[in-house]
Design a binder for these strands. Structure first.
Length: 863
DNA sequence: TACCTATATCAGTATTTCCCG
DNA sequence: ATCGGGAAATACTGATATAGG
């Protein structure tokens, strides 16, 4: 094994190995082999392997890389598996593989360009069609490699109309999963996890009978596996050029083979899996039980061709026809869940869109306004909308509170060119807004729908595209968007997925528009709705706070705060709590509620006095509305300030909350947002690295911000400094948008730092989820920040990769936190210290990248 | 016997699927 | 057929009990 690894790492072209009986590594047709097949694995390694990676990382994929027919390019590394054995014909399920090929016994696992391998969908054999194809990690960390399609949702050459869903039938991610994933299973030690299973998993549509296994145990990326795979970290790739992707900070996500970044290392890991025993079963992310049971059912989703041409991200083109052909036809459904776009009843003449080849990834934080433009949600959606499962019928479109539907309007746009409004379902937790892993937008059609829409896949996140027409005053009624719930098990089983679905039931509707300007730049705006509770139960029982009229109050308390929300009851209680770093309650008190003035959707609360009346610095606490045992609202944040401090939000101390509190962009809100910041969740925010964004000098602003940042600990009792959480920060990719020479002054000019909360990026093996993020099963459920999404930076399209500041830039204050957090941090940009678990080589690489990044920060604009 | 760890059990919840109007 | 509401079935969590070293 070892030698195999080494060989692989050294790009040894060929690896031969024997597989035990019933090798799980082969497609279904091999599933029942009774004799030990010999699998010859040959890796065709492109010469410029690293260069390729670099290019990918930099988002420089060119159209030339695209294989219109989905066929792999010659550059694609390949794994050829030659099995010597019989193929029980009855096992060859509906394989469309040409007979010749089956007889050949040669399985050519064409490793797609890194994108294909990175494509999460290729990594989530356990995912249902929708789940995987719905992979919402359309994030920068992911896109650090898969930048291109990430950012070019509509104009990317990847998404040529020629690449229709139908056309991609043979090149679905699911297929990719199959082929790519197959080798990951140790043939010798995981007899039960046959490739067939994996294959099927990727195609199945029904839940695993019992996804328990590793589920929620966060063992998918088990430490064992981690260590084992470190050697394959891309970071070790000599050719990895830091400059090519400033955002390509090396994080677990980046270099763990279990993650979405299928680079050469992933390929090697796959080979390794073939040659290694089950200890490092790369398929470990999939509970055996789940794998076994996943064969059942199949999604009934069919691929349909969207008139306008469906868009597929490169990741979805990850497989060659051969591979897909070998797979059972049913796998089609694997991704079809997202390709299932009914014939559009409307004539979808897609408005001429931004021409930028690089649009911001879906997890990038964008402002709602820039210059004259302002994207506003005129009518907010209801705070509750029961999402439907794939197994259910649609539950209709998201409604507005007062009836009707949400309305979005772009202000300040005077051109005659129609634009496209994008809509996707984003998260509503405390972390940066990003596509929600467990929910997808669902296109509603029917006679009740007046707004035409068009579904597209952007890096596996469903995006609804709605025309914004000048004749409609650039206003759109969103009556065509429902919300689809994906099974937690499907999503959680995905490689690289660190979020959990349990109690993670809040979402936001995220709207985006990209405005091309004469200068060639593209202005991207984003507005996100108030949080929407999508579960059934919660919607009916749990109190929900939408807004709070006060965010701060002197320690003496006594002020009255108006809470707007839902499910308030006559006996609802409002409890203020303060927790210590370890989560212990330091203080808890019930606030007085003005019962008479309270209604089911509003509560008048008298702020209770803080336990310590002599505050010297603001203290962040939380409060929640409680309707009884287990019926609590999410934590809301509240800050007690020294008596002489005005009860307004003070910038410096709120730095920790920057990601979501830095601005109020939801029009029409008279009340302050009500961010949820349970202690456990606040911490990662506070301790995560602020990533300066290079947007019109944002970096310098960031610096200033850093410099201005006071002690991260508002008070010694702040619940936010959790050493345990701090080491989560090796992650972040800078999700900044590319720099542009000219950036329209954003209303939130001060918001330039993107603070990434690491939970999503963390590696369970390294950072126990229990202490890491809101995703933690032990942490407050999802703890969404209800604050309407606050764009964090102004965007002007450009080459996304180039300008980002180093994601690894950290303020030493973070470390200070880690060490106790009481002393004011040295406000300098420093190389973040990584956990000891990381090997030195890795750290060296990271540091090198950081240095390069810092020195190469510049402003870019695309032609 | 005290302590620690692993495992089993159970009540309470959350999720997912089904049914029905 | 689509929407929505309700609820049963199932899965999961966390606390506690028990057994074994």
């Amino acid at each position: 094994m070892k030698s195999a690894e080494e060989d692989a790492y050294g790009y040894t072209p060929n690896v031969s190995l024997s597989l035990p009986l019933g090798s799980p590594c082969l497609p279904s047709q091999y599933h029942s082999l009774q004799t030990s097949p010999i699998i010859s694995v040959s890796v065709s390694e492109p010469h410029s392997y690293d260069a390729q990676d670099d290019m990918r990382a930099a988002g420089y994929f060119s159209a030339s890389t695209v294989r219109p027919n989905g066929a792999p390019t010659l550059e694609s590394p390949r794994i050829e598996i030659t099995a010597y054995g019989q193929f029980p014909e009855d096992e060859v399920e509906e394989s469309s593989l040409p007979i010749a090929k089956r007889v050949n016994s040669i399985v050519t696992l064409t490793l797609p360009s890194a994108d294909g391998y990175r494509d999460p969908s290729c990594l989530s054999p356990a995912s249902s069609i929708s789940s995987r194809s719905c992979h919402s990690d359309a994030s920068s960390y992911e896109s650090s490699f898969s930048y291109n399609y990430d950012n070019s949702p509509q104009n990317s050459p990847w998404q040529s109309p020629s690449v229709s869903p139908k056309g991609s039938t043979l090149t679905l991610p699911g297929d990719g999963c199959t082929s790519a994933g197959s080798p990951r299973h140790s043939p010798s030690t995981s007899p039960r996890t046959s490739v067939t299973d994996d294959t099927w998993l990727g195609q199945r549509g029904s839940r695993p009978n019992s996804p328990c296994g590793a589920k929620r145990k966060y063992s998918y990326n088990g430490s064992g596996g981690l260590q084992k795979h470190y050697p394959y970290s891309p970071n070790h790739s000599p050719g990895l050029s830091p400059q090519t992707s400033p955002r390509l900070s090396v994080t677990e996500e980046t270099w763990l083979p279990n993650t979405n970044q299928y680079t050469n290392s992933a390929i090697l890991a796959a080979i390794n899996a073939l040659t290694t025993d089950g200890v490092v079963d790369l398929g470990e992310g999939i509970p055996i039980k789940a794998r076994k049971t996943s064969q059942d059912n199949i999604p009934t989703v069919n691929l349909k061709v969207e008139p306008g041409g469906e868009e597929l991200s490169p990741g979805e083109l990850c497989l060659d026809d051969h591979t897909s052909n070998r797979l059972p036809l049913k796998k089609e459904g694997y991704c079809s869940g997202f390709l299932d776009v009914p014939q559009h009843p409307y004539s979808w003449s897609k408005p001429k869109q931004y021409v930028s080849p690089s649009l911001p990834a879906l997890d990038w934080q964008l402002p709602s306004s820039s210059g004259p433009y302002s994207l506003q949600i005129e009518v907010q959606p209801k705070s509750h909308h029961r999402a439907h499962y794939e197994t259910e019928g649609s539950r209709g479109a998201v409604k507005a509170l007062a009836g009707g539907h949400p309305v979005v309007q772009l202000h300040g746009y005077m051109e005659n060119e129609p634009l496209t409004l994008q809509l996707f379902i984003g998260t509503a937790d405390d972390r940066l807004l990003r596509p929600h892993a467990f929910y997808q937008v669902h296109r509603i059609t029917g006679k009740t729908v007046s707004t035409p829409s068009h579904e597209a896949l952007h890096n596996n996140t469903k995006v609804l595209e709605i025309p914004l027409l000048p004749e409609n005053n650039m206003r759109a009624i969103i009556d065509c968007a429902g919300i689809l719930k994906l099974r937690n098990s499907d999503i959680e089983l995905r490689k690289g997925e660190t979020d959990i679905g349990r109690k993670n039931t809040r979402v936001r509707m995220v709207f985006r528009v990209h405005i091309n300007q004469a200068s060639g730049r593209t202005v991207s705006l984003q507005a996100s709705s108030n949080p929407i509770e999508c579960s059934q139960r919660s919607a009916q029982e749990l109190p929900l706070v939408d807004k709070q009229s006060l965010e701060t109050c002197p320690a003496s308390g006594g002020e009255r705060m108006l809470l707007d929300g839902h499910n308030f009851q006559h006996d609802s209680k409002v409890v203020f709590v303060e927790k210590a770093q370890d989560g212990h309650h330091l203080w808890e008190t019930e606030a007085k509620v003005d019962r008479d003035a309270s209604k089911t959707n509003s509560l008048i609360v008298e702020i209770p006095p803080y336990r310590n009346q002599r505050l010297s610095t603001p203290v962040h606490v939380n409060f929640y509305v409680c309707n009884g045992k287990r019926k609590r609202s999410q934590y809301q944040r509240f800050t007690y300030v020294p008596a002489n401090v005005p009860t307004i939000k003070t910038e410096p101390h709120d730095d920790f909350d920057t990601p979501l509190v830095c601005g109020q962009h939801t029009p029409g809100l008279s009340l302050l947002p009500k961010p949820y910041f349970p202690p456990q969740v606040m911490t990662p925010i506070m301790t995560s690295d602020p990533r300066p964004c290079v947007v019109g000098g944002a970096y310098s602003i960031s610096q200033q911000r850093l410099a201005a940042k006071p002690s991260p600990l508002p008070s010694s009792t702040s619940p936010s400094a959790s050493p345990k959480l701090h080491d989560l920060s090796p992650s972040p990719f800078s999700k900044c948008l590319p720099a542009a020479p000219v950036v329209q002054p954003s209303p939130i000019s001060h918001v330039s730092i993107i603070q990434e909360t690491p939970g999503r990026f963390q590696t369970p093996g390294l950072y126990p989820p229990s202490s890491s993020s809101s995703s933690s099963p032990t942490s407050q459920p999802s703890t969404p920040t209800d604050a309407p999404f606050t764009p964090t930076l102004s965007v002007t399209g450009a080459q996304p990769v180039s300008g980002s500041a180093s994601p690894k830039v950290s303020e030493s204050g973070g470390d200070g936190l880690q060490e106790g957090g009481s002393s004011p941090p040295a406000l300098t940009v420093s190389i973040k210290q990584e956990p000891q678990e990381l090997d030195q080589v890795y750290l060296d690489d990271v540091n090198e990248i950081i240095r390069n990044d810092l020195s190469s920060i510049s402003v870019h604009s695309h032609a």
